[in-house]
């Protein structure tokens, strides 16, 4: 909430009822996006178990607006790749990532997803960033639920810094020049 700078203005009573606030559209969009991150749990191995713990009541991802785990890429905002990705699975992960609608983010959860972990063998992809763009890496084997929550909050911070319409502004500037 602190990222939104609100100014409350009291209008003359004859024209409007109550008050209103003004804000930057950027901040408003980012605020709503970061507090309703719907994760797609791409559980590939044991990290997925830890992810379940994060979603359950003890650690409770719902406190950060991310409790709505969706198993359809069409409805999800953030893909959490939790586990060892094999070359056979890479095609499927890429396809599901492509099916997700913008805006979308990707969290690489755990050592295997981030770097292949301890598996330097013929079937294991050495990090999911070989096939999908990753916004955030969480270390650990598996990461503690607190680490996942910290990762989620860091991603929220990243989202609140995002700039919208920068391309449009750049184009307008070019047009004027």
């Amino acid at each position: 909430m602190s990222s939104i700078k609100t100014v409350e203005v009291h209008a003359p009573e004859q024209q409007t009822e109550g008050g209103f606030f003004v804000s930057r559209l950027d901040a408003l969009i980012n605020w709503s996006r970061k507090n309703s991150l719907w994760p797609l749990p791409m559980g590939l191995s044991c990290c997925a178990i830890e992810f379940m713990a994060v979603a359950c009541s003890r650690f409770d991802m719902a406190r950060f607006g991310a409790e709505v785990a969706r198993f359809s890429p069409r409805q999800a905002d953030v893909m959490v790749v939790a586990g060892t990705m094999t070359y056979k699975m890479a095609d499927i992960v890429t396809r599901i990532w492509d099916q997700m609608s913008e805006p979308k983010w990707c969290i690489s959860m755990g050592a295997c997803a981030s770097s292949g972990g301890m598996f330097r063998s013929y079937p294991v992809v050495q990090g999911i960033d070989e096939v999908v763009p990753v916004d955030l890496y969480i270390s650990g084997c598996p990461p503690r639920p607190e680490a996942v929550l910290k990762g989620l909050m860091t991603l929220q911070d990243q989202i609140s810094e995002e700039q919208h319409g920068a391309e449009v502004v750049a184009q307008l500037k070019d047009a004027i020049a």
Partner: peptide, 27 residues
């Protein structure tokens, strides 16, 4: 393994692939 995988990995003379579906396997 994937259906289009080349070779049989537990053979002593197995050479792992250098590239699979556009992914660099040499890292």
């Amino acid at each position: 393994l994937a259906e289009d995988w080349v070779g049989h990995p537990l053979r002593k003379d197995y050479e792992p692939p250098t590239e699979y579906h556009g992914i660099d396997c040499t890292q």
